[in-house]
Design a protein around this nucleic acid. Structure first.
Length: 580
RNA sequence: GCGCCUGUAGCUCAGUGGAUAGAGCAACCGCCUUCUAAGCGGUUGGCCGCACGUUCGAGUCGUGCCAGGCGCGCCA
């Protein structure tokens, strides 16, 4: 788990620190309180590999112009046995560090040694973290919000894994409460209407209108007939829910699997009722005086814990709200299952839930900073430039299955290829943009103009590497050599060095993505790497070159292949070996 | 009315308080007898919504406006 860049930054920090000490003790600089030395990677390549602003930060203390301070710091540096080749003062007082190429060759060696582990870091130190995402209402199919939240949540979990956390992916099944009741009433109404005619009973005003409800009941009737007609209504609803809910859940599972997502835990809301945890939780909150009764309902005093207003936890009909079971659920996450950190993904339209959930967590004596809520903006689907909302078939919003099907369809693909393609394209698109940005997804662009699709750009780079490696072996008899038997200094062209620099950046990208919970950063990174690979491909040949060059370049593209694979594996996007 | 999110090139978006603000698409000009042209190279294109403030330094932080999205006691 070597992070070459991190090591270099440490080395430079040390050099700067030593130099400051020396300058202070010799009286060239007054005694200064050195702030945390910040080493950054300049945007402009002419400014070196790394730079620091320390001279400007201590301007006041040093009582000198920043450039003058910078010169003093540079003069006192000891660069022996470091990767630093040259140090310059530039601009308003930056100190720029130029490295010798050794660190790039070191990077190739690290990648060759670590293979599929390259990019893994130990930021998390094995801390137990749960990522709860999708958690779709099981009364119907997955929609676009679930699709974005799913791609995002799954990748956040994967990034955290790569960053050294012990990650659990969890789906919270809302199989209790109001919407299940609504589900039961909708099923019941369709059941009766199908058997006795449309006018036999009115359909509930707020019921689920979708065609899938009718389909469930057609199937049910074809198996079980009309025997529930004389059953008492509440029992009938219960039986119908018990029939349809597992089918819906199974469909959700399958859809998610096709989408590349497999959860470690499927956690039932109903189980919180059954185990008594909900009751225990409510008792705890009440006994600590965190509730108040008003208008026949019981309220949680969320305002006492920083939220804007109080929230109902038990309605005046005596039934707990969703919020009540969510409190019990979080008690379970933190106190029963002892997660160090919990990350919930929520559509931005649920942002009102954040403050009250944090308040509830605080009320149970848990540090609310341990709960992160990632809000993602909703998705607007477009097709041929027009908003595309409803699926005609189901009368519902476009489902994840519809999307994958739509993206994957192409006369030449078989069903299996279509699903994989749809998954790759959808996941790539959903993870190209930061979670907070609104996302317009134009399906016609992802399907018709597939040659402009960025997912191809990356996969093509990977396939290109695979082809070259295969042909080098078959036609030249040269295999990827052992890294220690090759003269890596043969890699000295601009395109080669740029490519290696990009590869060196990978562990750093993982660290930042994990810290900011933004896997979109990795999507853009892998696009970058692919770009450098394509540029290299056009500037440098492999087959037909002199043997030492051929071997060094084979190692370079093999290392590139490793990085592309590792990133795509975090994103759960396939890395095909050929595209034709 | 209050709260959360967003505002950067024609479009879609990057941009961890740093130096001359970037990419893709679109437009235009080049490159296939050479390992995949699903590719490469180049040109054009910016009051970073507006105004103050903090700072050696602001697209980035703070305050106030403006515009869009979302939410606001017994839905989830």
């Amino acid at each position: 788990m070597a992070n070459v860049i991190e090591k270099l930054i440490e080395e430079i920090k040390l050099v700067v620190n030593e130099s400051l000490k020396k300058a202070c003790s010799s009286g060239e600089l007054p005694e200064v309180l050195v702030p945390e030395i910040l080493i950054e990677i300049p945007r402009e390549k002419e400014h070196g590999e790394f730079s620091t602003n320390v001279a400007m930060q201590i301007t006041k203390q040093a009582k000198k112009a920043p450039r003058q301070t910078a010169e003093i710091i540079i003069k006192n540096m000891n660069l022996e046995n470091t990767y630093i080749e040259k140090v310059e003062c530039a601009g308003p007082g930056f100190i720029n560090f130029y490295l010798n190429l050794k660190w790039l060759y070191e990077t190739i060696k690290v990648i060759q040694a670590e293979r599929e582990d390259y990019g893994k870091i130990n930021l998390g130190n094995g801390a137990k973290v749960m990522v709860e995402f999708v958690s779709a209402n099981p009364t119907g199919p997955l929609h676009m919000g679930n699709a974005r939240g799913g791609a995002l949540g799954d990748c956040i979990a994967n990034v955290l894994k790569a960053a050294g956390y012990d990650v659990t992916k969890e789906f919270y099944i809302n199989d209790a409460g109001n919407q299940i009741e609504k589900f039961g009433k909708s099923l019941e109404a369709r059941y009766i209407q199908l058997l006795l005619g449309e006018d036999a009973v009115p359909f509930p005003e707020d019921g689920y209108q979708g065609e899938d409800i009718k389909d469930h009941m057609r199937d049910y009737i074809s198996i079980n007939g009309d025997k529930l007609l004389n059953t008492e209504s509440s029992d009938r609803q219960k039986i119908l829910v018990e029939y349809a809910l597992p089918i819906n859940l199974q469909r959700i599972r399958t859809a998610l699997k096709n989408y590349g997502i497999e959860f470690d835990v499927w956690f039932s809301e109903q189980s919180l009722y059954d185990s008594g945890e909900l009751e225990e939780t409510l008792k705890f909150i009440k006994e600590n005086g965190y509730t108040v009764e008003n208008e026949g309902a019981v309220w949680f005093k969320a305002s006492q814990f920083g939220a804007e207003k109080d929230e109902v936890i038990i309605r005046n009909n005596g039934l707990p709200t969703y919020f009540a079971s969510d409190i019990a659920y979080h008690r379970n996450k933190f106190l029963k299952r002892k997660f160090d950190r919990v990350i919930n993904l929520l559509g931005a339209d649920h942002h009102g839930h954040v403050a009250r959930m944090k308040a509830a967590v605080s009320s149970m004596g848990i540090d609310s900073d341990k709960l992160d809520v990632v809000l993602f903006q909703l998705v607007r689907l477009f097709k041929d430039g027009e908003a595309y909302r409803m699926s005609k078939r189901t009368g519902r919003a476009v489902s994840l299955n519809d999307l994958l099907e739509e993206l994957g369809k192409d006369g030449e693909r078989n069903d299996e290829e279509a699903i994989i393609y749809g998954k790759d394209a959808a996941r790539f698109f959903f993870n190209m943009k930061a979670s907070g940005s609104h996302l317009d997804f134009d399906m016609s662009l992802a399907v018709q103009k597939s040659n402009e699709n960025p997912v191809f750009y990356v996969q093509y780079a990977h396939a290109r590497i695979c082809t070259i490696i295969t042909q080098a072996k078959e036609k030249e008899g040269v295999e990827i050599p052992d890294v220690n038997s090759v003269d890596l200094t043969k890699l000295d062209k601009k395109e080669e060095l740029d490519l290696i620099k990009a590869l060196a950046q990978f562990p750093e990208e993982v660290r930042i993505s994990a810290k900011t919970l933004e896997p979109s950063r990795l999507t853009r990174y892998v696009l970058d790497v692919a770009g450098y690979l394509h540029s290299f491909y056009h500037a440098c040949h492999i087959r037909g070159e002199e043997e030492n060059i051929m071997k060094a370049r084979l190692l370079l593209i093999d290392s590139t292949r490793t990085v592309i694979r590792n990133v795509l594996s975090i994103l759960s996007i396939s890395a095909p070996e050929r595209m034709d």
